[in-house]
């Protein structure tokens, strides 16, 4: 049973230490048959914005991404990451296939991601604490 849905899972995986991510991918490929369908290559993703005045959509421009597709025991996995990052794209693709197939290895990855999420929250709180120092306190100048 997978607890982390993909949107949250990929958010965490994108920020996870690359060498640890590659270790997880290697672990999956050690236990299963991994095959590259599309080697990591650059491409573009168009950004769609819904503006807040009238709710109109518009295209704001493109972002460079790296895409990789693999199969793990015949299940396709997609790795898609902003920027040119072939290693992360490949590791993400392997891990995505493992999650799509619900392989037993994903349990341990989920556990690590849950712990990592707490680290990220800590960083975010530090950032919020830092930004709060620039908060304007109008009541003190009135």
């Amino acid at each position: 049973m997978i607890f982390l849905r993909r949107q949250e899972r990929t958010r965490l995986l994108l920020q996870f230490d690359l060498s640890l991510l590659e270790k997880e991918a290697a672990h999956i490929c050690h236990a299963h048959h991994c095959q590259t369908l599309k080697a990591p290559a650059p491409g573009l993703v168009m950004v769609t914005i819904q503006e807040s005045v009238e709710g109109d959509y518009f295209y704001a421009g493109e972002v460079l991404v790296t895409e990789c597709k693999v199969t793990v025991d015949g299940i396709i996995g997609l790795g898609l990451v902003k920027g040119y990052d072939t290693r992360r794209a490949k590791a993400l693709a392997i891990i995505d296939a493992a999650f799509r197939a619900d392989f037993p290895e994903v349990k341990s990855i989920e556990g690590k991601l849950e712990a990592f999420k707490i680290d990220l929250e800590q960083s975010l709180n530090k950032e919020a604490n830092s930004l709060a120092k620039t908060r304007v306190q109008f009541e003190t100048i009135l």
Binding site: P42, G43, E62, L131
Partner: peptide, 18 residues
């Protein structure tokens, strides 16, 4: 470069503000 995908419609009110 090929265009591989288009994002979901994003609302900038969801940005992590600086």
């Amino acid at each position: 470069l090929p265009r591989l995908a288009t994002t979901q419609p994003l609302q900038p009110s969801s940005m992590t503000t600086i």
